[in-house]
């Protein structure tokens, strides 16, 4: 189903339809994440991917024309690059351990300690929260700073533009 949506996005020329299809794709992704028992990630995907970014894209769509422009040349080189990249990635998956394999390396390192000791050490039953805010506190601080920087960057870009225009009006 997600593949169908992807093909529809690639074929579709109307950008409004592309935004809506992108939102649908996000919801499908969130459903897949719920099926994988990653509820926290699914929640983020549904709210950010399907909600906020759709609104922002629609806002951006208002500023540009609603139709995709015809590409200048035939996009054979990008197509070849994506096919090769996809091939390499699929080849890479052959080296991965089997799905839900308990003996996979990622489940051997720190995961047993987190799962066994998190409740005792932090008193927080949701291990995702415990790892995010406590064991990996530095990383989350970094992420928060990244979000802050993104916001500050948008402010810096758009606000300067507005002031320039106002200066232009005065002149």
């Amino acid at each position: 189903m997600m593949a169908v949506v992807t093909v529809a996005i690639a074929v579709q020329g109307n950008l409004f339809a592309v935004v809506v299809l992108g939102s649908i794709y996000s919801f499908l992704m969130a459903t897949a994440l719920v099926a994988l028992d990653a509820v926290d990630v699914a929640m983020t995907e549904a709210s950010v991917g399907a909600g906020i970014s759709t609104v922002l894209l629609l806002g951006a769509l208002h500023l540009v024309r609603g139709e995709e422009q015809k590409p200048r040349g035939r996009p054979w080189l990008p197509l070849a690059a994506s096919v090769v990249m996809a091939g390499v990635l699929v080849y890479g998956t052959f080296g991965l351990p089997g799905f839900s394999d308990a003996g996979a390396p990622i489940h051997q390192h720190v995961v047993p300690r987190y799962l066994n000791d998190a409740v005792r050490e932090t008193g927080v039953p949701n291990v995702v929260t415990a790892v995010l805010a406590s064991y990996r506190g530095y990383d989350t601080l970094g992420e928060t700073t990244v979000v802050f920087t993104a916001g500050a960057g948008v402010i810096a870009l758009l606000r300067r533009r507005r002031r320039d225009r106002r200066d232009g009006d005065v002149r």
């Binding site: 509820v39 709210s47 039953p125 805010a133």
Partner: peptide, 12 residues
């Protein structure tokens, strides 16, 4: 702390 969610999701 007890169910899915947290600061990021709540903020969004």
């Amino acid at each position: 702390d007890y169910g899915p969610g947290g600061g990021f999701q709540a903020g969004v």
